[in-house]
Amino acid sequence: MTRLIALTLTLVVLGLGSSVASARDWQVIRIGVEGAYPPFSALTADGKLVGFDIDIAHALCAEMGAECTMVQQDWDGMIPALLARKYDAIIASMAITAERKKKVAFTGKYYQVPARFARRKGSGIEISEAGLQGKAVGVQRATTHDNFISGEFGSDVDIKRYASQDEAYLDAAVGRLDLLLADSVAMQEGFLDTDNGKDWEFVGPGYTDVKYYGDGAGIAVSKSNQDLVDRFNKAIEAIRANGTYQKINAKYFDFDVFAG
């Protein structure tokens, strides 16, 4: 009898152990978001997270039948926090780049828009190697824009790197920057259309150079959770097919952000 109990207990313990070790069923997913990148991700005055990324995250979770919690995280610590398992996925307009793929797995893109420069109206700055000589250009640190400006114009430009895009807008508005380089849609809605950015305008072409800008914005997931990547990919396809994506798209933009 004692042996039987011991055996049962052992089996139960083994059973529990194996169910913990096996893949999670993803009923509950924690999602890392930034909250400082309007209109994709922002905080309202009363501290609620809103934006395209947030709506997409909720739509994907609804599609997967999962319960999602949003975890706000500064950009610099976004990937380290994912690796530290503070959340299971990043939905924060993160471009799919080769450097990041070394550390994390990505889904397919969920949107893609070109990057552009903006200048103060009447400054007459042109986007060329000579035109950028000695100019203060504001970018968000360790973004695709940072890599682009550092790689293409690095030695000629005074690059000012900010922890968040909002901080760069702030310094641009008060006159500390000559140029901004950012995602064109984010900059339009988050800066140029606001009171702070009323004296600023776009200049130069749109950039989508794969070497720097990768394959659009994707969802980053730990490499050990390939099953979650597959679930997200299926969910992205599903919300694009059933019109949910288009509804969210129309709420924020008057053009298709998926194709770019």
């Binding site: 610099d76 610590g77 990937i79 380290p80 690796l83 990041r100 360790a142 890599n147």
Partner: peptide, 11 residues
Amino acid sequence: AKIVNARHFVP
């Protein structure tokens, strides 16, 4: 250090 951390994710 912050740049290196943010680029290579090695805090």
